[in-house]
Amino acid sequence: MAGFREITSGLRFPEGPVALSDGSVLVVEIARGALSRVAPDGAVSVVADCGGGPNGAAIGPDGAVYVCNNGGFAWLERGGRLVPGHQPADYLGGRIQRVTLDGEVTDLYTEVDGHPLRGPNDLVFDADGGFYFTDLGKRRPRDTDRGGLYYATPDGRHIAEIAYPLTEANGVGLSPDGSRVYVAETVTGRVWCWDVEGPGRLRRDGDGPAGARLLHGFSGYRPLDSLAVDSEGNVCVATLVTGEISVLSPEGSLRHTVRPPRHDPHVTNICFGGPDLRTAYITSSGWGLLYATEWHCPGLELNHNA
């Protein structure tokens, strides 16, 4: 694995990286409530003010950016790093937003079957144009929401709860052929998977929550964040506390880990870009950094992100 290159610094808890064809990278700045663009030279410009806590992001079939907004956090500072805390006093409420690159923000979904979205976290589009997204929920001083996995269409007409309950459902991704969906749970340190029978329809033949099968359970204290899948089918999941990307084979074994040069317990996300998809962009959220490093194989080309 090649060394790391720091693209930019000073971001306000960056997450949800999306590599664009012009070499720039979209990131959400959760603590800033914004979707921002990082140019190849590191210059940062705000694309849109989303409010609350924009979290995961993905390009949809119409070219717009779809954002999971968790509603916001109360923020702490520890040793110069930003750390997300409990549900804040000015909590916006969870929502899925459609954001155009000229800055127009539309709230697409705020509830499912009469239940409000609490803390939408990450999303991935399938080849049919719909998207899977996780809702991690929110933490409060004496209680915590249950999480889940959902499926929705970008036209605002259909949303369904497809796996519930999960424990702090965070990263979500699809296998290269779209036949399997993966979900990382934060606090349990587990990556679950289901076979996909059709858009938003899962085979529930496992012993885990909502019929999931266990891909990998981490030993020790390894909370998990967002994930991406590479062209070999490896699940590359951001691993908190240890501050690294853990690379899991499609069979569930831990192949290796990739750690940025400056330790950050909040290494939160990874995406792939560049002309050959061999550049991995990694968010070091606590320090407000965006890194690039060469990956050992091309990443997976995401649906609708050409």
Rank of each mutant, 00 (worst) to 15 (best):
A292T: 14
T242K: 12
G208C: 10
L248P: 06
I245E: 01
Y281A: 13
G211E: 07
R180P: 09
A292G: 15
V196M: 02
G243F: 13
G286R: 14
V258P: 01
I245T: 04
S179Q: 05
G220P: 05
N234Q: 06
L277I: 05
P260E: 15
H263S: 06
L254E: 04
A280H: 13
D207F: 01
D177H: 08
N269C: 09
D264K: 01
T188R: 10
L290G: 06
Y281F: 14
P260D: 14
T242V: 13
A280P: 10
N269G: 08
T186A: 09
C271V: 09
R180D: 08
G178C: 14
L214F: 04
S219E: 15
N269I: 03
G243A: 13
P199V: 03
V258N: 02
E251T: 14
A238K: 00
P223T: 06
G243P: 09
E294K: 14
L215E: 11
Y291N: 06
Y221G: 01
P250L: 06
W194D: 00
R190M: 05
G220L: 01
D264N: 04
V235G: 09
G211F: 05
A238C: 04
P275A: 06
L290V: 05
F272H: 08
W295H: 11
S249W: 04
S284Q: 06
G288L: 07
G208T: 09
A184R: 03
S284P: 01
F218G: 03
V229R: 07
W194M: 02
G208S: 12
L215G: 12
H266A: 11
R255N: 12
T186W: 10
P223E: 02
V191E: 07
L224I: 01
L224D: 02
S284G: 07
P261N: 12
Y281I: 09
V181F: 02
T293W: 07
L215Y: 10
H216N: 03
S246Q: 05
L277Q: 08
I282G: 02
G286D: 14
R203D: 08
D177R: 06
